[in-house]
Computed example of a mutant assay.
Amino acid sequence: MWTVSGLVGAAVGIAVLVGAALLLGFTRWSWVPAPVVDRAWWAPVCYGVYGVARAVIAPRWRYRVHRWEVTADVVYTRVGWLSRAWQLVPVSRIQTVDHTQGWLERMFGLATLEVRTASHAGSSKIEGLRAEVARELSEQLAVRAGELRDDAT
């Protein structure tokens, strides 16, 4: 899913840059120097190479570094590319648990689980879960949070 998402993003970016290059080529505005117009095609080509490389490399790297775990008391998440962030969300502090599916996630049978607390900094997101796993986890966490509910102070 992350690879297809990257390729779709690259295709949109390339389309915008090709449109800009065509616009520069057809209009020949007096204030745009001719060398800029002649070299305008390099932008979509360079962005295309970058976009394809990112779509191939980023998902594999992301899969290696992003982790999550749910225990009886805590939801652990680890994210980050160069610098890593570990987040521990106590189940007793959970206010809402949502699982959502974008159009691309639905195509692949995946979902995103969002665990929210009263503090935005305490909220966590787990992306790329199988849809059944996300649904089951959201139900289990909601029940467990209700059982452990305290005054959260």
Score class of each variant (00 low, 15 high):
60 R>S: 09
30 S>V: 08
9 G>I: 06
74 V>E: 14
39 R>V: 06
97 V>T: 13
51 G>A: 08
52 V>G: 06
65 V>P: 00
59 P>Y: 09
143 V>C: 07
57 I>H: 04
82 L>S: 08
28 R>E: 13
80 G>R: 10
16 V>T: 05
107 M>G: 07
60 R>V: 12
12 V>A: 09
103 W>E: 08
50 Y>M: 13
136 E>I: 09
72 A>P: 02
6 G>C: 07
53 A>W: 11
113 L>H: 07
23 L>V: 10
75 V>W: 01
37 V>A: 06
20 A>K: 00
91 V>Y: 02
76 Y>F: 13
100 T>S: 11
60 R>F: 10
63 Y>Q: 11
25 G>I: 00
92 S>Y: 04
134 A>E: 11
25 G>P: 00
77 T>E: 02
101 Q>L: 03
47 Y>W: 15
1 M>H: 08
103 W>N: 08
118 A>T: 13
142 A>N: 14
88 L>P: 00
104 L>G: 04
49 V>P: 02
129 L>M: 12
92 S>N: 09
147 E>K: 10
72 A>L: 08
10 A>Q: 07
128 G>K: 07
25 G>H: 11
132 E>V: 14
130 R>S: 10
132 E>I: 13
111 A>T: 04
22 L>T: 04
93 R>W: 01
91 V>N: 03
86 W>G: 00
139 E>S: 12
25 G>C: 00
90 P>R: 05
78 R>D: 02
77 T>I: 07
139 E>K: 09
55 A>S: 13
21 A>M: 04
153 T>V: 15
35 P>F: 11
131 A>C: 13
134 A>Y: 11
40 A>D: 03
149 R>S: 14
143 V>R: 15
36 V>N: 01
127 E>C: 11
110 L>Y: 00
146 G>D: 14
89 V>I: 08
122 G>Q: 08
82 L>V: 13
137 L>A: 14
108 F>T: 02
145 A>I: 09
136 E>Q: 14
43 A>D: 07
35 P>A: 12
82 L>D: 02
13 G>N: 12
116 R>H: 10
94 I>S: 06
93 R>Q: 10
29 W>L: 12
99 H>K: 01
20 A>M: 08
32 V>C: 02
78 R>W: 00
30 S>Y: 03
136 E>P: 04
74 V>A: 02
132 E>L: 13
137 L>Q: 15
97 V>E: 03
146 G>K: 14
29 W>P: 00
88 L>V: 03
10 A>D: 09
